[in-house]
Every structure is written in C-alpha cells, then in structure tokens.
Amino acid sequence: MTLSPAEWEAIRLSLLIGLAAVAWILPLGIGVAWLLARYEFRGKALLDGLIHLPLVLPPVVVGYLLLVALGRQGVIGQWLYSTLGVSLPFTWQGAAVASGVMAFPLLVRALRLSLEAVDPKLEAAASTLGANRWRVFTTITLPLAIPGLLTGTVLAFARALSEFGATITFASNIPGETRTLPLALYTLIQSPGQEAAAARLCVIAIAIALASLIASEWLARRTRQRLQERDG
C-alpha cells in the first residue's frame, strides 16, 4: 500500500514529536531517577508523587495545567515569550513537551529500578580507585543500568507516540504541526465515510509500535554484547 501525503505527514510528526519528547526527558529523567535511587532528602515523597501524577491524572488535566503554566499568559510561558520569544502552545515543540510530560513517569520508574539494582559497593570500590562522582556515574552506574535505560526509553517513546489528551489540549490538532497519528486517526473517525482511511492509520500505528519494540530488543542485545567486549 502506498501512503498518502497526509499519512506521511502524520507519521513524520509522530516520530519527530516522539523523539523530541524522549530527547528532552532523557537527561532530566536520568538525573531525577539517580536522585531518587541514591539519595534521601526532604520532600522526596512529594517529588516522587509529582513525577507520577501524569500516570494517574486525566491527560486533559495535564494538558490544561500545561496551558496554565506554559501558555502565553502562563506563569512560565509569559517569561519564555518575553525573554526568548518562544511560544509553545499550538506548535510541534509544544506537542513534544506535552507528550514528554506524559511519558516522564514511565522513564523514571524504569530507570530508578535499574539504578537501584546497581550495587553501591561497586561504586564505593570505584571511588577508592580515584574516580570522582561523575566518573563513577558514567563508567559504573550508568553502564550497569543500560538495560533499564533502554526499556525506559522505549516505553517513554511509545507513550509519547500514542499521547492524545494532553497534546490536543495543549498543542491542539493542527495539520502539519501537531496532528500526530492518534490525532489524525481521531479526526478521521470524526468525519463520516473515512472508515477505510482510519483503518489504514490503525495498521500504521501498530506497525510503528511493533518496529520500536523489535528495535529496542535488538539494541538491548547489542548493548549487552558491547558491554562484554569492552575493555575499558
């Protein structure tokens, strides 16, 4: 089957927004997961709760909160617009922010579990060998947490791809800008006589999801091999 320009557009936007979402939440997620896995501090439970909110809140609420915070009249949005000239709502970057927020808890959960599984005794051993905190983290902790990092990243990517509620609320449904696969599918279902086109998009969505799962499995296996071949 050949894809129509509109379908290509939706696929391109979905991948772009999914990747952008993962790209911005990955460093933040690693930092937060490390904090939660290795340190005790005041307000830890609160931070943990805040991070997990998108999992339990209706996505529309998250989208609305984003509008309140990042909209042009919003607390942060106003500052962003006046100092950097950046406006997030109704843009694909805004869609990436929304789907990233929704995917964030999945990433942090997977990462935190795998970071907690790394034996702190190995980190202590590395420090006695002269490695500072940063080197311990990049050479011992993170490499040993890579399986969880991959799982978390793929989960987050898949979540970002399928994000609907927060995206449509915050970034709207603009063809060529924020109309990702789920939004395109929703639009088709809304208009009579488009059942065949909707079915096609459905198949495409399934194909992309499967492909990313297979790719992650392949990546995980390759990383394990590379880790074993590595000689430092």
Partner: peptide
Amino acid sequence: RLFPHYLVRGN
C-alpha cells in the same frame, strides 16, 4: 567487587 562490565584488563 570487580566491575562486571569490564574485562579483567579494564578492571
């Protein structure tokens, strides 16, 4: 406490 992801040489 050897690092499991490095060879003996790397350790």
